[in-house]
């Protein structure tokens, strides 16, 4: 086949990815083996000390556990809320469909940090929710700087991604298959479970992985809504970089976070039966 000139456009993108992603990762890997020194910043070495520090101190395990629990919880809630919404959006023939899609996409028009500031106004003491609760029930709600606030905030960031991914998955499944199942006597629920769900499963898996990765790497939401006492991996990494200038340990934390995310994502893929995988 004759090469298409359009393929030439792959060159710059490939170079950009190689330069801006792979090269810094290589540099980071090298840094993670160096020794930390407050005056010298880093001393060239090839020591596993930074990785050993993480794996031998209970504190860091605890932070990793919190991070995984938050990411899993947010992913489950995203699936629970996103699945019906995405399915309904995909199947609706309403003339308002475009407007409904726009409502789902709208939060993505605003940066996640700015949206988090909105949550801060809602959750603050004497904020909107607290004042409403006092007015209605005479009870104070102290949500700010709590794990619940972090889960709600991260959920709000991830949900549009989940809904958009799932909606396109359901759009790709021919609705006539469900109609055929129902024509053969299956109730709508059974038709969904037996026909749509197995076909959608690979896409659902991808959407869940997307949400899980976003949850594992969440930074602004845990910092702003969780406060300094709520420890997750990305804020911890930044603390080491920004407070102590400990680049080697920050680099090691980055690789550990990346490896854990990759490992859990691969495990999730294994859990999906082979015949349903993408």
């Amino acid at each position: 086949m004759k090469p298409s000139p359009a393929i030439a456009f792959l060159g710059p993108a490939t170079c950009v990815v190689a330069l801006l992603l792979v090269a810094p990762l290589g540099l980071l890997a090298r840094y993670s083996l160096n020794k930390y020194d407050p005056t010298e910043l880093m001393i060239e070495a090839a020591t596993p000390a930074n990785y050993l520090r993480f794996f031998t101190e209970a504190f860091y395990w605890d932070v990793m556990r919190t991070t995984i629990v938050v990411a899993l919880l947010v992913t489950c809630l995203c699936l629970l809320l996103g699945l019906p919404l995405a399915y309904r959006l995909a199947r609706t023939t309403s003339r308002w469909k475009s407007a409904m899609m726009l409502v789902v996409v709208l939060p993505l028009f605003i940066g996640s940090t700015v949206r988090t500031v909105g949550w801060m106004i809602l959750f603050a003491q004497r904020g909107v929710l607290d004042s409403l609760s006092v007015w209605l029930f005479g009870l104070h709600i102290d949500l700010m700087y709590t794990p619940s606030a972090v889960v709600i905030g991260t959920l709000s960031v991830n949900l549009p991604f989940m809904v958009l991914t799932l909606q396109s998955v359901f759009e790709g499944i021919d609705s006539r298959l469900e109609e055929a199942a129902q024509g053969l006597g299956a109730a709508p629920g059974r038709a969904f479970w037996k026909i749509v769900w197995p076909l959608a499963l690979p896409g659902v898996g991808i959407a869940a992985v997307l949400s899980f990765i976003l949850g594992m790497n969440a930074y602004a939401t845990p910092v702003l809504l969780g406060g300094p006492r709520f420890q997750m991996m990305a804020p911890l990494l930044f603390w080491e970089f920004n407070t102590n200038n400990n680049w080697p340990f920050s680099a090691a934390l980055g690789f550990i976070l990346m490896a854990t995310t990759l490992l859990l994502t691969t495990l999730a893929n294994v859990l999906i039966p082979r015949r349903y995988r993408a």
């Binding site: 090469p3 298409s4 000139p5 393929i7 060159g11 710059p12 490939t14």
Partner: peptide, 16 residues
């Protein structure tokens, strides 16, 4: 890869 050659990719890089 159909239509993907080293020469075309390099041309793209040089043109960027």
């Amino acid at each position: 890869v159909p239509g993907f050659s080293r020469r075309t990719v390099l041309a793209g890089v040089l043109a960027a």
